[in-house]
């Protein structure tokens, strides 16, 4: 019986190994083609680069030059980090307040947040970009406000879910010791909320880093590009796409994500599961 089970196990291992190789094949294909001359990419993407096709890092250089990818990388990083930080700080504060103080205002806020979660971006896309434009938010600092606003619904919902489970006694003890609400929040509540902070960080960072539509409508694209905007920029308006540069840009866009994923795999997977289960 045991021997049969083990044999069975190996069949599955082999099956999933093959499947895993197939799963990463598209990424491998892009990496391989990024070292080929552009004329060979569309016609024979599955051939390994021979000496005749090989161009070294030329595609990367032209991709970076055409799109300003290095600056785009910087802006993506800046916008993602500061938007997520703002979301974590302000949404957790709001969420704690609306779970502790029950009145008409706080329950309205809560239901508005729930409501905003089912509204697709297309619904507010046009008016949001016009309002952001009027308020001069079309720069990497201004867009943080937009991200905080549009990301608030889900984040507040997740934080309130956790706040409800924090025992009141802990906060009351802090109060008796002379903490005001701000001190109570930052010294007592915030540390307890750490797991939820990680979950929200991961969900929001994944969204903001990969978001194309919102920054492309809000940001002044001549001055500021994010990575997705840079990728789409290569496609341009007319004519054929420079496939060489495209491959280079795609690889540079993917590599940091994969490194980050391998480094914080455990947190990412846990965060995604926790986020889905509560959301």
């Amino acid at each position: 019986m045991d021997a049969r089970k083990a044999k069975h196990g190996w069949v599955w291992t082999i099956f999933f190994s093959v499947l895993s190789v197939a799963w990463v094949f598209p990424i491998f294909l892009v990496v391989m083609n990024s070292f080929k001359k552009k004329v060979y990419i569309s016609k024979m993407p599955f051939k390994l680069p021979t000496e005749k096709m090989f161009v070294g890092f030329d595609n990367y250089v032209s991709g970076v030059q055409k799109t300003g990818l290095i600056q785009a990388f910087g802006w993506s990083l800046f916008i993602t980090i500061f938007s997520v930080a703002a979301i974590i700080l302000f949404c957790s504060m709001t969420a704690w307040y609306i779970t502790r103080v029950k009145d008409k205002v706080t329950s309205t806020i809560y239901y508005l947040c729930l409501f905003s979660m089912i509204v697709p971006f297309q619904m507010v896309m046009f008016t949001l970009s016009k309002i952001a434009n009027m308020l001069k938010l079309g720069n990497p600092v201004g867009i943080i406000v937009v991200y905080l606003g549009f990301g608030a619904g889900l984040s507040i919902f997740m934080f309130t879910g956790f706040c409800k489970s924090i025992p009141l006694e802990i906060e009351e003890a802090a109060m008796i010791d002379g903490c005001n609400p701000l001190q109570t929040f930052f010294r007592v509540v915030m540390p307890i909320m750490k797991p939820t902070c990680i979950t929200v960080t991961i969900l929001q960072a994944m969204w903001i880093w990969n978001d194309y539509l919102l920054p492309s409508l809000v940001l002044d694209q001549k001055k500021y590009k994010t990575i997705p905007i840079a990728v789409q920029y290569l496609k341009g308006g007319y004519g054929s796409v420079d496939m060489g540069a495209m491959m280079g840009v795609l690889v540079i866009a993917i590599i940091p994500i994969i490194i980050f994923y391998i480094a914080c795999q455990k947190y990412i997977i846990e965060g995604v599961v926790a986020g889905a289960v509560k959301g």
Partner: peptide, 23 residues
């Protein structure tokens, strides 16, 4: 302390969601 806890999020929420939705 309500303004400190609510105002930043609600201003952004109004700009990023409520106003664009109603408009």
């Amino acid at each position: 302390y309500a303004p400190i806890f609510l105002l930043p999020t609600m201003v952004a929420f109004t700009i990023g969601f409520i106003a664009p939705f109603i408009l």
